[in-house]
Design a protein around this nucleic acid. Structure first.
Lengths: 200, 200
DNA sequence: ACATGGTTTAACCAACTGGTCAAATTTACG
DNA sequence: CGTAAATTTGACCAGTTGGTTAAACCATGT
């Protein structure tokens, strides 16, 4: 599979849109990044918005798909929690730009996100029943699964979204220290969640 | 204190910039929102970027100032944690647009955030020593205060940032259900943090 | 060689944007 | 009142942007 022009454009668009957002991104910049003429962008994808929507839906879809899989595996409860946090953070490590990109679009056009989400459902039923079962057995505190998921995601995502702030406030601008901090997050978040579920 | 033209502009700019971001916001839109002529914007504030920077620094400053106070109060450890979460969520309830706004700017111009942050320090020394002390006394697990703060903020902020997604995925588009969920967050986050700190 | 179809380009355009400016209007004040 | 300063406006401009188009290019099959 050689690098088709279409592929070049999509890859370039992904980069530029991700770091600039829809409005600030320039078609010329995407063309330059792809090493082609600007008119070609319109030849393959009709308009800027069409191109953006395509790129965004693809990226978001892959992202959502990943965490859907993690949450829906048929494995023991605590393993699933640990697996989810590990897997989710792995995705973030591989695409650190992604959360900011998605948040930007959420902010710009919430309606599109909603319509996209409604077409793909995130089944948390299995996870839900696992929690009620563990709670009934007295293995964990009774908690709302929705809050639990939001807690996990929030703790995972925040340091990526707020990178420059944390970098300045906590680490005095040291990329090294920030990186070490991120490495620690996996264990920290797992410990926080699991300790919070134990019955004392 | 009557509504000066300058005040009108700043208020309008805050609204428009917050929901559109710098690039997508239009000076004409700000002028309309303020009910004045576009040229007046340039009369009072030289350029779009100057106006934006002013608005942004003011908003961010107030935000940071709020949480700085919460973290630095000289009160018992557990009270401080509860107070921080309550206070932080109160600020978010009053300015639900704020996190998205800040994230957007972080993404657009990280350097500015860094320079802004470096001029104001967030002293977590007091909080830090409180934690080590409580841990030494055996009252809580030994944890890294930086991770603890990031955990709290992450759990607080995320549902505001991801509102449309949660709304679609968890609540089937019901604003009512989303609102109830937010109301529960205070107790949920406090419980999660405090339970995770207890020693069994 | 040449005809055909998809691909690529340079040049161009209309619309919009931030910004300017001279004139008009309002305010402040002796 | 009168006038000078501050404020407000409509008209305008230069630069940029997404998008178009006609012509050039190139691979393919005949």
């Amino acid at each position: 599979m050689s690098i088709s022009t279409e592929g070049l454009i999509l890859e370039a668009a992904r980069k530029v849109f991700a770091r600039k957002g829809l409005e600030a991104a320039r078609m010329q910049e995407i063309a330059d990044e792809a090493g082609i003429n600007k008119a070609l962008l319109h030849y393959y994808f009709r308009s800027k918005e069409k191109l953006f929507e395509l790129v965004f839906r693809e990226v978001l879809g892959k992202f959502i798909g990943g965490m859907k899989g993690l949450l829906n595996e048929d494995i023991p409860f605590f393993s699933k929690i640990e697996g989810f946090i590990d897997g989710y953070l792995d995705i973030l490590f591989q695409n650190p730009y992604l959360p900011g990109f998605i948040v930007m679009e959420i902010h710009r056009n919430p309606a599109e996100i909603v319509s996209f989400m409604e077409s793909r459902d995130i089944p948390i039923k299995l996870f839900e029943s696992q929690i009620t079962e563990e709670a009934a057995r007295g293995n964990i505190r009774a908690v709302d699964p929705r809050h639990l998921v939001v807690n996990m995601i929030g703790m995972c995502v925040f340091p990526f979204i707020a990178k420059p702030i944390l970098n300045a406030v906590l680490f005095g601008g040291s990329q090294e220290a920030y990186r070490r901090f991120l490495d620690e997050r996996k264990e920290t978040i797992k410990a926080t969640i699991i300790e919070s579920l134990k019955i004392k």
